[in-house]
Simulated assay, not measured.
Amino acid sequence: MELSRKIAQIRKQKGLTQEQLADRANLTVRTIQRIESGASAPRAFTLKTLATALEVNFDELIDPAPADNQIQTDPDKDIDFLKTLCLSCFSYLIIPFIHFLIPLALLHKTGNLNREITAFARKIIRQQIFWKVITCLTLLLTLAYNLLSAYYIGKGYQVHYLWPFFIMYFLNGFLILQRWRQINGMRPDLQRLA
């Protein structure tokens, strides 16, 4: 329930008019009207004053965060968010070592996502972290191969470092595009859940 409706409901249950509540809370009637209509969001001090005037606990007055499975979101906004998150993964082309921090920041900045959207977003971020680790390991293995072949064989065949580098970069681009296609396929499922 919205805070404005909750305050109005508690006031009516206590049998108070807006004027009486305003007198008890030492606020103006206009302030009470604006809060109950949802035109203004009260500050914490005002909420504490209202809780005292209504004789309820401050924690009961403020709305608790809904459970993950009760969060109502717009499927189109969820799809747009996932697409933005997916596109932000292409930052590996510019910032190859810490690019996964950009989609991670987007996820933390966006609140109130349902469980399915959050899980999919985390899966995208984990994929980028795994890609980074595998890319580094591939380059280290290339170095080890080149050192061993130079030491034991002499002028044996050396693998150029750009080959595994470009292969891994193209692979990541392909993986990001695969996730993009998965996101487009999620739209009917999200609309069914809404």
Rank of each mutant, 00 (worst) to 15 (best):
I7W: 09
I102C: 02
L113S: 11
V133F: 04
R122A: 00
G154P: 07
I125A: 02
L82A: 03
W131H: 02
F100S: 01
A121K: 06
A119D: 07
I95Y: 01
L85E: 03
M1Y: 07
Y92V: 02
L27S: 10
C89G: 06
I167M: 09
L148M: 12
W180M: 07
I32R: 15
K155E: 15
W131G: 01
Q158C: 03
S37I: 11
E55W: 02
I124H: 00
R126E: 01
T142L: 09
L54K: 05
K83M: 14
S91L: 04
N146Y: 03
L106A: 01
I176E: 01
A39T: 11
A51Q: 11
F165V: 11
L140I: 15
M186Y: 08
S37H: 07
L190K: 15
K155Y: 13
T135M: 03
M186P: 12
A51E: 07
K12Y: 03
A119S: 09
Q9G: 10
Q182G: 01
R115P: 01
L113M: 09
I10M: 06
T46V: 10
R24L: 15
A144Q: 09
K14Q: 12
A119K: 15
T52M: 06
L143V: 10
F81L: 06
Q13T: 03
D59C: 10
A22F: 04
D23K: 11
T84V: 08
F130C: 07
K123I: 01
F81N: 15
T84W: 13
R30L: 15
G111Y: 02
I176S: 04
L177D: 00
A39N: 13
A44T: 15
V159I: 15
T49W: 07
N172C: 09
H99T: 04
L106I: 03
H99N: 03
P42M: 15
Q70C: 07
L54F: 11
N146P: 09
I79H: 07
L148A: 14
L106S: 08
G173A: 11
G185H: 04
N114F: 05
A25I: 08
I124P: 00
V29N: 12
P188W: 14
E36Q: 05
D80I: 00
F130K: 06
A150K: 11
L82C: 04
D59T: 10
S37R: 15
P42S: 06
Q20E: 13
Y161V: 09
W163R: 03
I153C: 07
P188R: 06
F100Y: 00
A144R: 04
A8F: 08
A121E: 01
A194G: 06
N69L: 14
R122V: 00
I134Q: 06
L101R: 00
Q191S: 08
R181E: 08
I71P: 01
M186S: 07
I117M: 03
R34H: 11
Q191K: 15
I183Q: 02
L50F: 05
R122H: 08
N114G: 03
L190P: 12
I129C: 00
A150S: 13
W180V: 00
L171N: 08
